[in-house]
Design a protein around this nucleic acid. Sequence first.
DNA 1: CACTTGACCTGTCCGC
DNA 2: TGCGGACAGGTCAAGT
Length: 293
Amino acid sequence: MPELPEVETVRIGLQKLLVHKTVQTVDFDWPKSFPNSKQQVDAFLLGATIIQVRRRAKVLLIDLSTNYSLVVHLKMTGQMVFRGEQYFGAGHPNDSLIGDLPDKSTRVTITFTDASKLFFNDQRKFGWMRLLPTAEIPNIDFMKKVGPEPLEPEFTKEVFVERLQRRKNTSIKAALLDQTVLAGIGNIYADESLFIAGIHPKSIVSAVPKKSLFLLHTAIVDVLKLSIEKGGSTDRNYVNAEGKKGSYISFAKVFRKENQPCPNACGGIIEKLRVAGRGTHVCVHCQKLYEKE
DNA sequence: CACTTGACCTGTCCGC
DNA sequence: TGCGGACAGGTCAAGT
């Protein structure tokens, strides 16, 4: 579930908490979550100091003084949680929403020289973290294919419409979820932005009027910005770098609102359908279905 | 190439 | 109460 606003919220937190910390030890035991060898970890992670934390699409990039980076994808249930020294040892506080760490979902534990720790937790093991030379990051397949950042100036209305052409015969929802069209949209913000723009998620891209695609562009930018302000959406698992939840979900208009009245007070009820293989929330009264001619 | 579906996993919830 | 099955949804591989 972490999408752009959630990953950005984690990035902001980690940037504040991790920069200048030096890695002392690393514990990991699930190769799919962290595939690097012990030799690589010894050579490029132990003793490294954290320089900065970046984000591209839904991927976190933790740059190290060794010219390597930790590249992290949270997928659905991944969490990156930092705990200061005070959370460990006798009489430690336990005010967190996710309890003591490590726990049974912990895949990687990084301990810093000041006894603070960073945990990579991932219940479903879909997420991953790997150590790569910083200079090689732009060469990995995902980075070569991924579309523009929606909150950067390069993401203009014209660029959006042009990039949608690569998926013109599919549903608008499938196109929004395609990371090569634009970066960072997932199920929550696809449903929210399509509702705001008044477009039914099953609409075929080529049939949607340009004017509506322009409205959708604005809706995407607005919704992502608002969610970052609210610290992202906690639907089930998501927490920020301090283990705390985001509050955007309480501002959501249709996501997880099935069987509730439409927020536009149109008299309709939000329905839940399946589009592009995902649970999809829609007001069929307010969202127009554009079908193939 | 464009598009859709299944696999990867585990925890939760629902119906019997 | 236990138990099987559906569901949650990001990305990639495989299939049409």
